[in-house]
Design a binder for these strands. Structure first.
Lengths: 152, 152
DNA sequence: TTAGTTGCAAAGATTTTGCTAACAA
DNA sequence: TTGTTAGCAAAATCTTTGCAACTAA
């Protein structure tokens, strides 16, 4: 069963301010784009959406803000198995880590949560004495639809 | 306990030839570099090592050969949590998948195999009806040495 | 012979840096 | 006021493409 949707509007903004960081008009715009994204966005897509709110925002500001969010652990950077080029995708750091599955045929990205994943991370921390800050599990393969579909 | 070292010299070359691909002097060189690597190498490092064997090899040929190996599932592409830039690292596809742990302080990369990881992939295949072709689990954090070390 | 491969040059894609003006606190 | 941030331009980094010459099978 899915987690309850605990979307807190402006959470990113609140977290950044709680850390004493300056809240500029541009940052507010970019944060709102990331926060309300319904899918994984790369830097260019974030810039495009930000432009619709504030056409003056520069691409560099998007990169700088994403780096800021990354450093503070507020967003996760994904590669999604490099399905289309080397761009990176961003999503708000979830309350519970999930796995990203990328279909090599149709490109669909599916997310999956698992107790086994949580236990695996626990095992790593214990047996390797490694303190995990961030983790990323991505798998590439064929989704159920593409497995049963006729060959391309 | 570690797996037995079943290093088969020339395995990459044998696998490519078994697939009916042409074996050129340049490919042989690049394959031997990848095969005998004692650590994760990026394209530039592979080129550098290949140059020591055959100074005429072009960077482009390295990229093309790596892409070939990737497409055939003979090497895995790693990001190692982008610890130093956006380069990719390559390793021969292991008999059993392992986890890469990247220390955010000292940069050390540690590998770890786990039954839980295997079970997790089994769960994904079963519950998501997703046929896994390639998987990548990377974690960033602090290794045991850096955890107990004095702050930088 | 001939389809596949290489090297070279150039382009492409993504991200970062340096600097001054503008701005949040 | 004062240290931070934004915008602009330029550079840096990594990777791919086009094409003629070369080569493995």
């Amino acid at each position: 069963m899915p987690l309850p949707e605990t979307e807190i509007p402006g959470r990113l903004q609140a977290e950044l301010m709680a850390r004493g960081l300056r809240m500029t008009r541009q940052r507010r715009t970019i944060l709102s784009v990331v926060e309300t994204a319904k899918q994984h966005l790369d830097a260019t897509q974030i810039l495009r959406k930000a432009h619709k709110i504030d056409p003056g925002i520069d691409r560099v500001t998007v990169y700088r803000t994403l780096n800021l969010l990354k450093r503070h652990g507020l967003v996760d950077e994904l590669d999604l198995m490099h399905l289309e080029g080397e761009k990176h995708y961003y999503e708000r750091h979830p309350q519970r880590d999930h796995i990203h599955m990328a279909c090599l045929r149709c490109g669909k990205i599916t997310e999956f949560e698992s107790d086994l994943f949580d236990r695996l991370k626990g095992q790593i921390q214990r047996e390797c004495q490694f303190h995990i800050v961030v983790s990323r599990l991505e798998v590439g393969g064929y989704c159920s639809q593409c497995r049963s579909a006729t060959p391309a």
